[in-house]
């Protein structure tokens, strides 16, 4: 059973601190949901765990199965079993969806292994059908011309074929209509197993109607400030995050910086109390 441990993770970008000491443990078979207002570091956490080179780790550690992965490159982390379904998957013209997934799956094989292509085609087609992706998916260029919902479903299709140990699903619900959301939720639910740990990053509870989370974490200002169960989702759905900020004494005003423009050649960030 895989285990991802994030210990007191502090990270920054261009000198600005984004994560302020995140602690999280995810085991195979568990489903965690990370919720929180915009700009609190949820997607950044996923990107940092995956190894995005833009971010700098200031302190803390990330361990997969007991070994630190901080020194590993993105692809090495992927081959170790991490996966990130992205908010904005890129488009690669000229590369077919099938060739891309085949390359990704092949990258995981040992030197003496080879991909059984016939079997792989059947798996690809079955996943595409189950996700209602249409018959021509394998020949379409990677994410090119895909609708927002198709891109998200394609991320899930890749996940199911790559078969990771720990997967972040970053706002996989955005761009999906109700039917597609239900489809994706049920598909991922069927993927659940003791060999797969899931971390769902979402703003809204609607994804969690179809994909049950065992643990819910609220992230504000680069920290997980509260963890609990499904009752947290219901409370956020009805009351938002203000009660939590009040409960924890988080300076709300600092969260609400106002951007305004001074004509075309200057801009300033207002602090509370500044006069316009």
């Amino acid at each position: 059973m895989a285990i991802l441990e994030i210990r007191n993770l502090v990270a920054s970008i261009e000198g600005q601190r984004i994560l302020n000491g995140v602690d999280l443990v995810v085991r195979g078979g568990e489903t965690h949901a990370i919720m929180g207002p915009n700009g609190t570091g949820k997607s950044t956490l996923a990107a940092i765990v995956m190894g995005h080179p833009r971010y700098r780790i200031e302190a803390g550690d990330i361990l997969l199965d007991g070994e630190s992965i901080l020194d590993l490159k993105v692809d090495q982390r992927s081959r170790k079993g991490l996966f990130l379904a992205m908010q904005n998957p890129i488009e690669v013209p000229g590369v077919t969806n099938f060739d891309f997934v085949k390359t990704a799956v092949s990258a995981r094989l040992q030197a003496d292994e080879h991909l059984r292509i016939g079997k792989f085609i059947l798996r690809f087609e079955a996943a595409a059908k189950a996700l209602n992706m249409g018959e021509g998916l394998s020949h379409r260029f990677l994410n090119q011309g895909f609708s927002g919902g198709e891109k998200k479903r394609n991320e899930i299709l890749q996940m199911s074929l790559i078969n990771p140990k720990i997967a972040f699903l970053d706002e996989i619900d955005s761009g999906l209509d109700v039917d597609a959301l239900k489809l994706v939720g049920e598909y991922v639910t069927n993927m659940k197993s003791p060999e797969l740990g899931l971390i769902l990053i979402t703003h809204y509870e609607r994804l969690l109607d179809y994909l049950t989370a065992d643990h819910v974490h609220i992230m504000i200002k680069g920290r997980i400030v509260k963890s609990g169960g499904a009752e947290l989702i219901r409370k956020i759905d009805t009351e938002g995050y203000d009660w939590l900020k009040a409960e924890l004494g988080i300076d709300e005003l600092e969260e609400q910086k106002i951007q305004y423009s001074l004509g075309s050649c200057a801009a300033k960030t207002l602090s509370p109390g500044d006069k316009l």
Binding site: A47, M50, G51, H52, P53, R54, K73, V74, D75, R77, S78, R79, F83, L84, M86, P89, I90, V92, P93, G94, V95, D99, F100, T103, A104, A107, R108, F141, L142, Q158, I162
Partner: peptide, 28 residues
């Protein structure tokens, strides 16, 4: 950087990722 990150997050090394992008130009 974001293109590379995406492709590498699927297990492709940096050179494999660049090669894949180039193959998208060449293949058709």
């Amino acid at each position: 950087e974001d293109e590379l990150f995406y492709l590498q997050s699927r297990g492709l090394s940096e050179s494999e990722a660049k090669r894949l992008i180039v193959s998208g130009y060449v293949g058709p």
